[in-house]
């Protein structure tokens, strides 16, 4: 069941169409990865979903209602972080959270605010003024503000900006938890394709304001064709071992020190066991991010098509 339906959405800035006749839907309870190169129109689309920008044409329906005519009741059930999570630097995290919770139409209890700050790992610094926070802490506070009123839909524009690897993993796990355990619908844009790949159940890719692809992640990139790179101390010995194994037909490429195979993702543990038991000194076995490959492939195709048209 679709919870967000976008039809023929267009936004013109002068003669430039930042978003051009874009249509897509987001399934209830899904984590939709929203991808596109810089300037593709992701932020403009997200801002239109949040009524920050008025569309030139097209319609947006959320929870089955038109966004422009039912703005307030729809926004009550949406939490968002848009690019930088800017808040009031002269207030503490606790006061910021309380203020935005009240603006969301709720009267938050101290326990609720504490729970949310604990969820994002800021409980210990809740009373500090935000002006002394790091970018990562501000990002966490932005997430807390997005979640405090318990919205059904969470829209996150680059939520891992400025976070360290642990912070990125925390946010990823939180998003997965929100969807899996709390049945929230999450629309998340990110430059980190590997992160999107690990958490998105659906993917929407746009370029130059137009949709290239959308659908369930599993149908977009086939796990049976996962690319695996191998690095060993003796590449020619390894190559021989692979050719003599059931994986011989999967060998694709052979470079100076690394070998490339196309293999079903489920077969990767067997491949690694086979190589080790046959005396291969394995330095690195790395499945390449299939979403990244897919993204580059699809956006390059679009660029090529444009070039051809031109």
């Amino acid at each position: 069941m679709s919870i967000i339906n976008v039809n023929g959405l267009t936004k013109q800035f002068g003669s430039i169409a930042a978003v051009n006749n874009l249509s897509f839907s987001v399934e209830k309870g899904s984590v939709c990865g929203f991808l596109g190169q810089n300037g593709a129109g992701k932020s403009t689309t997200i801002r239109m979903l949040l009524t920050l920008i008025r569309p030139t044409s097209g319609s947006i329906e959320i929870f089955g209602h038109n966004l422009l005519t039912h703005r307030s009741e729809i926004l009550k059930n949406i939490g968002a972080v848009i690019e930088k999570p800017d808040v009031y630097p002269y207030l503490s995290a606790y006061d910021n959270l309380k203020l935005f919770a009240r603006l969301s139409g709720m009267k938050p209890t101290a326990a609720r605010l504490k729970d949310i700050l604990e969820l994002v790992g800021l409980a210990d610094r809740a009373r500090d003024k935000v002006k002394i926070y790091s970018q990562g802490m501000k990002q966490r506070l932005g997430l807390a503000i997005a979640l405090v009123h318990d919205p059904e839909i969470i829209i996150l524009d680059e939520p891992t900006n400025g976070l360290d690897p642990q912070g990125i993993a925390d946010i990823r796990n939180l998003i997965v938890r929100l969807s899996r355990d709390l049945k929230k619908t999450v629309l998340v844009s990110s430059h980190l394709l590997s992160e999107i790949e690990q958490m998105a159940t659906h993917v929407l890719i746009i370029d130059k304001g137009r949709k290239l692809v959308d659908g369930p992640s599993a149908s977009l990139f086939d796990p049976s064709k996962t690319i695996v790179e191998l690095e060993t101390l003796d590449p020619s010995f390894t190559r021989q071992q692979i050719l003599n194994s059931p994986y011989g037909g999967n060998l694709m490429d052979d470079r100076d020190s690394s070998l490339v195979l196309q293999i079903n993702r489920n077969e990767i543990p067997g491949l690694s066991r086979h190589l080790v038991t046959h005396g291969v000194d394995l330095v690195r076995l790395q499945p390449r991010h299939s979403l990244e490959d897919y993204f580059l492939q699809i956006t390059n195709q679009n660029t090529d098509a444009d070039t051809y048209t031109d």
């Binding site: 949040l50 848009i82 800017d86």
Partner: peptide
Amino acid sequence: LGTLRLLLTKPI
């Protein structure tokens, strides 16, 4: 401050 966009995503 950048807070305008956050404020305007609220149901007001």
